[in-house]
């Protein structure tokens, strides 16, 4: 819908994500900048893997916001371009290990698309460290926590992303 895309930021309640880039609300000037990373996770392996990390209380940074999809093969490269256009500092896609896809082949198709996308994003000026793809199974809570930790550290060190479409 056009409205949702055009809703001005002012009409929203105080934003939390990326507060340092906006004018910081009073009293919060001291908060350091935190990157926002959009995570597309397949329902069967990686979303469950992130659940496992939770069940095992594996502490990791807060910066990843997960969008659940049934399969990594459901992730349209346009979603990723969209996220970078709208100012995501990073995008993390995670699915079942190749060969273990719940739908048997979804992640193989995903892998082809995302391989192309990775090269393309760099070509368009997005640092490849801002776009990561991992295979995390339902039992790999530990791996999920580590992936999040390492990506957040890297992206934080990179600073705010130039928005794709602005490429500033």
């Amino acid at each position: 819908m056009a409205e949702s895309a055009a809703t001005p930021a002012e009409s929203r309640p105080p934003g939390t994500a990326g507060t340092a880039v906006e004018k910081p609300p009073a009293g919060e000037e001291t908060r350091e900048w935190e990157p926002v990373i959009v995570g597309f996770l397949c329902n069967w392996c990686s979303y469950a893997g992130a659940d496992s990390a939770g069940t095992a209380r594996m502490v990791h940074p807060t910066n990843v916001r997960i969008v659940r999809v049934p399969c990594s093969g459901r992730v349209n490269p346009r979603f990723v371009l969209r996220a970078f256009q709208r100012g995501a500092d990073g995008v993390l896609i995670s699915g079942c290990h190749p060969g273990d896809c719940h739908y048997s082949t979804g992640n193989f198709y995903a892998r082809r698309r995302l391989l192309l996308l990775k090269g393309y994003l760099e070509y368009l000026g997005i640092d490849p460290r801002r776009f990561r793809t991992h295979w995390v199974s339902a039992s790999e809570g530990q791996k999920w926590a580590e992936v999040v930790r390492s990506m957040c550290e890297e992206v934080k060190a990179l600073g705010p992303a130039p928005s794709l479409g602005n490429l500033v």
């Binding site: 190749p98 060969g99 082949t105 193989f108 198709y109 892998r111 082809r112 698309r113 995302l114 391989l115 192309l116 990775k118 760099e122 490849p128 793809t133 991992h134 295979w135």
Partner: peptide, 15 residues
């Protein structure tokens, strides 16, 4: 993009 090979380059190792 409508096919794949199980031996396609892996993403995790790729870049």
């Amino acid at each position: 993009l409508g096919c794949f090979e199980p031996g396609d380059p892996d993403l995790e190792d790729h870049g």
